[in-house]
Design a protein around this nucleic acid. Structure first.
Lengths: 134, 134
DNA sequence: ATAAACTGTAACAATTTTAATTACATTAAT
DNA sequence: ATTAATGTAATTAAAATTGTTACAGTTTAT
């Protein structure tokens, strides 16, 4: 279990509440993780067009669009694992009738689960999430 | 990301289709993971009253109740992680207004997500899942 | 133009988690 | 008694995650 989603959401929350650019050092200080890790996640968010950066002195990061146009689903998408309910590294026995087919059925189930999850996360946007903070 | 859920569901599927007891070695052979790991998961399933075991020679494992009375949600419950969308090991900065509150809001979000997930998994039972296999 | 303060990223090290292995006590059938 | 199974602890090995160091590139300010 990794911490990419919580860290990414923490970043997005800070950027949402910020007025102007925030540096990766500042973000790392609030989250309390390594600044390089934060920059990696920011890099990923930029790739997904949710964050914009300004290089050079006095540079930093900001949201690439309005917080009410960024759903939590869109944020989750940026870090979504292949297998929502976990992935074993085994190769099931192809001679066993169950082993042979389990991955197909698991994949279908995961697609289903992913759908309801995304429906829920699509319901809330970043602005709403941030408004919960006092 | 770990493989507990896929392995557990694989076990349950094999037991569902079996007629009589299955040994941990047999299960491990279909899943293609170590038999001790399988026994650990079986142990967990027994603790949750989904599986029963018979010790001694010719012993093995079987479902503890009818497959149509076991929802996929109940199976998921046996291996459910604390944090469905991931948990970072950081301790957010308590001096930062966002860092101070993020875990509370994350926890609420996770509870919500967990709810829709469980609703979906509660909709399908093991018998239905197993019927998908040819 | 040069120094300073940033981003961007690669390479590596440390830590943590996951899975496999070994070992063996216990149980039950033959 | 022997055999074949479960149950579980302890250890090792492998993989994934996070942290660290290093440095090239960019922009601003002086």
């Amino acid at each position: 279990m990794n911490g990419r989603f919580p860290i990414t959401l923490h970043i997005m929350t800070l950027l949402c509440k910020a007025d102007g650019l925030l540096s990766s050092e500042y973000l790392a200080g609030s989250i309390n993780v390594n600044a390089v890790l934060v920059r990696k996640e920011l890099s990923n968010l930029i790739k997904h067009h949710l964050v914009a950066s300004q290089e050079g002195k006095n540079g930093g990061y900001m949201l690439a669009k309005s917080a009410n146009q960024i759903s939590l689903g869109a944020i989750y998408e940026t870090v979504k694992p292949d297998a929502i309910l976990g992935q074993a590294k085994n190769q099931p026995n192809p001679v066993c009738p169950v082993g042979k087919q389990i991955n197909k059925h698991l994949k279908n189930l995961y697609a289903d689960v992913n759908k309801v999850l995304m429906e829920r996360l699509g319901d809330t946007n970043l602005a709403e999430f941030c408004n919960k903070f006092e």
